[in-house]
Write a protein that binds this DNA or RNA. Structure first.
Lengths: 117, 117
DNA sequence: TCATACAGTGATAAATTAATCACCATAATG
DNA sequence: CATTATGGTGATTAATTTATCACTGTATGA
């Protein structure tokens, strides 16, 4: 994992939150996992546009930060399932609210971005 | 402003939200402005670590996306004040919640990051 | 033996965001 | 004229995040 050169400000909750979930895919992944999609191969399909490699990276970070846990079933072919930890769960209400806000804001953003030519 | 090469998915609220507020400083800035800090020079002081140049960029983007508005007073020295638009205001409850979550999560993150040597 | 499904990694490049540093402009003040 | 306060920009580099592509490994079934 990348070793930060610019340190985190632990006294700013917003900073801390951004550090662990402020990326292109993490919110979507947590959301999808909370909806019941647990296996990597299913997540790749469920999350539009993400690639396998990027997915693995994001899952690893989320696990490292303690928002996700995983269970390995020694079946063949191998089965791995990710799940939300308590910390991950505690984030869900926020994710739902952000998603809702984003959907409401989408038309406005679309309009703004399409106007500037 | 940078012209995206990888397009936004307007159907994913989380994606949309990340596009407009998913950056190192935006949440902090909106938070600070909502608390009454309005002028650039005061924001530079209030937001720990941000530089003048970066501040101006972030303010410009927030204004462009319609989360902030600004008033120019033709005084000398020049006085400019930023304020939250309705869209910006609608985001505040979320920002407060995220900040709170981040503060609660901070000790856990600190521990994790300090352990890995 | 060859192909398939699944999870995962290494090396590298491309995209994106943030930081640096040096500037411009206005008008007041000494 | 030199300095100060305020807001702002341009060019460039550094930092960070995402994406690509090619692999490894296990066991199964054709």
């Amino acid at each position: 994992m990348y070793q930060r050169k610019i340190p985190i400000d632990y006294n700013c909750g917003l900073n801390v939150a951004m550090e662990v979930v402020g990326s292109k895919w993490k919110f979507c992944l947590l959301d999808e996992i909370s909806k019941g999609t647990k296996r990597p191969k299913d997540l790749v399909n469920a999350v539009n546009g993400i690639t396998k490699r990027v997915l693995q990276n994001q899952l690893k970070e989320l696990e490292f930060h303690g928002l996700l846990g995983k269970t390995i079933y020694t079946e063949i072919p191998l089965r791995v399932e990710y799940f939300l930890t308590a910390s991950g769960e505690s984030l869900m209400p926020l994710i739902v609210a952000i998603d809702k806000w984003g959907l409401e804001f989408a038309p406005q953003l679309k309009k703004i971005l399409e106007t500037e030519d």
